[in-house]
């Protein structure tokens, strides 16, 4: 049944590799996206990858559904998931109490100490499974099993940017201050959204992320630097 190709209005083709969140499906998405971005085609506007699908955007004045479908089929036939080496990025994390409003409750709910929650978070190697929702929001998949929790029942307002937030098997380092129902266990001074650069986000689809613990002094120094 998969991959499944579905036309979207007058300007897109949705290429679905599955119907659930799964590392194998997600790696196919990342590979298709990478090949598409490298190849391009006349009228190509953008590739929007997500957990299990890629939206191939096109300009209907230049190309059409039939041509884009043929190109997508060619990419699918030749792509080699897992062959390309993944870029790896280090994200800095400070877990001090005032930056980690949900650390104690997470520890309680998972039956661990706060230090064990931190150690578990630091032990993960995460993959950028999707970006979306808000500018630079990268959904990092790979949170170790023992500290997985469903999200809160209601979102909390004004979660500051830089918050390291957890839910299910995922982790996000937020880039804008927004409401969120995820568990906040620390804060990062690493600039992920950097609009003056190209690309504007530190990570790309499929990249690997690891976290490195920093102390409060380093966090404060870097935060001051970033703000100036």
């Amino acid at each position: 049944m998969y991959p499944r190709l579905v036309p979207v209005a007058d300007c897109g083709l949705l290429v679905e590799f599955g119907d659930h969140i799964d590392p194998v499906i997600n790696a196919q998405v990342a590979t298709f996206d990478r090949d598409l971005m490298a190849r391009g085609f006349p009228g190509f506007t953008e590739s929007v990858p997500s957990w299990s699908a890629v939206l191939v955007g096109f300009d209907p004045l230049i190309t059409d559904h039939e041509q884009v479908r043929a190109l997508a089929e060619t990419i699918i036939a030749t792509m080699k998931p897992g062959a390309a080496k993944r870029a790896r990025h280090e994200v800095l994390a400070c877990y001090d109490d005032d930056l980690a409003p949900d650390l104690a409750i997470m520890a309680q709910k998972t039956g661990r100490t706060p230090d064990e929650v931190i150690a578990a978070h630091l032990s993960g190697t995460y993959v950028v499974g999707m970006m979306g929702f808000a500018p630079g929001y990268a959904y990092l998949d790979g949170l170790p099993e023992p500290i997985r929790l469903p999200r809160k029942t209601a979102p909390v307002r004004g979660v500051p940017k830089g918050s390291i937030m957890l839910a299910g098997s995922q982790c996000i380092v937020s880039t804008v201050t927004m409401p969120s129902g995820w568990w906040v266990i620390g804060r990062s001074p690493t600039r992920i959204l950097r609009p003056e650069n190209h690309p504007p986000v530190l990570f790309d689809m499929g990249d690997e992320i690891i976290f490195k613990r920093i102390d409060r002094k380093t966090f404060d120094a870097m935060s001051t630097e970033a703000a100036s």
């Binding site: 997500s50 999707m130 979306g132 929702f133």
Partner: peptide, 10 residues
């Protein structure tokens, strides 16, 4: 149970 995916304008 749909995973999040691209949400085009319109």
């Amino acid at each position: 149970d749909m995973p999040s995916q691209a949400l085009p304008r319109g």
